[in-house]
Design a protein around this nucleic acid. Structure first.
Lengths: 254, 254
DNA sequence: TCTATCAATTCCACATAGTGACAAAACATT
DNA sequence: AATGTTTTGTCACTATGTGGAATTGATAGA
């Protein structure tokens, strides 16, 4: 998970760790006890840090003060960050253009630890079921083309680590196994983009391509979700070409 | 600004303060020097904290490492928080319903320090110019109905403080002065919701109503933006009734 | 190209701020 | 009433974070 900032400051590192643990919690909200266990911190220390974060509204307490979750400040910072010159605003136009050109549902996914998370999307003309649902939804890295597109271009070592970590979670997806994901990774590497045709959700297909940061690490992906029924020869290639063009544009602004 | 958590932890308090200062920076990005001045921290200390936050990707450095802005984690936390049982997801349905019933642009605004910020919105059938633009945009508290709706129901003392703080910034809005805002506040208090008919942007009107938290403090507002030309008798009242109904629903879930 | 200036970064000795063990009160859940 | 969990406190210790000063790095002007 590489939560070690080395020359950082202990308290801040711990606070950041707790924020991450809480953000990771699949179901929303983590209890003190869980956080103590997962972070390895002393109960008193953990509680003190959480309290301070709640005080600053970076976290919020719920259910009659028994569970911690991300706080109101996070909405605000998130919204603010989205406006700044970050990923989301750099991809905004691309999403809209892709949506307009094709009429399909388009999305921007980003990586967060072992998950792939929907940062932004444009809904298509016909409503299709997507893995992540709307903004904020997440799936284990490895499930779905948007997710594979990122995973495929990570370092081998990291890939394997993530595959092992997510192994159990793949079970809840149709026919998904570590082996299958490995195969998809190879295909995606060869092809340059990820494709899924009705494998995860019957009748639903997806194409996605990774976005790399300045140093070449894949940090996000741009993709389409559409109905398998629409596919005709060259259909997928054409969509991939559209993605390629937008991503070239996005990456050129790095 | 009440950034004192009293029994908090110094380092965390400072880090939270810096995050806020950076998020507040109207133009994106703040330099170390600015942050040192505005926070009153020692340069070295400030630098160390910022570095650690950058290490955790809560902040990001730009322009060849010369400016700090909100980092990638903020997108992620923001997106995650939006999904949880917070304001955004509690209002999601309401926004969509309001948009559907009226065909107008609807938005959810929240308060952040002295600003009012667009957390979510649904675009209407005809594109209208709005004060805040899309998600993440902000205006000084006092400008625009979505903003007045919140300001009007704050404590008097706080209102006055904010008015004084924002005085200079009102100048960049059409005909806006502290006096005028005060007048609008009174009207809004009496009426229960805020209305602007072509005053800030010629030809554009807005209605907005505050959302209160568990203890009755206004934390957000729900509103419409539409063309003045559409207005007929009872038009605004009808829209206000729609807002009222949705907000009752939202607040009942507190 | 060289120099002056201001900003950003690194260093380091010191004291404060945060730690964790323990205990006990306040809540929840059964 | 009994159990388990969360919250609040106290306290001695020292690792942690602090800030002054020095170093390095950028920018602009000559």
């Amino acid at each position: 998970m590489a939560t070690s900032t080395a020359g950082g400051s202990q308290l801040l590192d711990r606070a950041a760790l707790l924020l991450d643990l809480i953000a990771d919690g699949n179901s929303e909200g983590a209890t003190l006890k869980e956080l103590v266990e997962r972070s390895g911190l002393n109960t008193a220390t953990c509680h003190r840090i959480l309290n301070t974060l709640v005080g600053h509204r970076l976290l919020a307490r719920d259910d009659k003060r028994r569970r911690y979750r991300l706080g109101a400040k996070m909405f605000i910072y998130g919204a603010r960050a989205a406006r700044g010159p970050g990923l989301i605003s750099r991809c905004e136009m691309s999403l809209s253009r892709l949506r307009k050109k094709t009429g399909e549902t388009t999305h921007l996914m980003a990586r967060h630890n072992h998950d792939s998370l929907c940062l932004d999307r444009r809904d298509g003309e016909c409503v299709v079921q997507t893995l992540t649902g709307s903004i904020g939804g997440s799936v284990p890295l490895g499930a779905g083309p948007g997710s594979i597109a990122m995973l495929a271009f990570l370092e081998r070592e990291e890939q394997e680590f993530i595959l092992r970590a997510n192994e159990a979670r793949f079970a809840s997806f149709r026919d998904l196994t570590t082996d299958k994901v490995s195969r998809l990774i190879e295909e995606t590497r060869g092809r340059g983009y990820a494709v899924d045709i009705g494998e995860l959700i019957p009748g639903i297909a997806g194409v996605a391509m990774p976005i790399h940061d300045e140093v070449g690490v894949p940090v996000a992906s741009l993709g389409f979700t559409f109905l398998c029924a629409k596919i005709v020869p060259d259909f997928v290639d054409n969509y991939a070409a559209l993605l390629r063009a937008e991503i070239d544009l996005i990456e050129s602004r790095n």
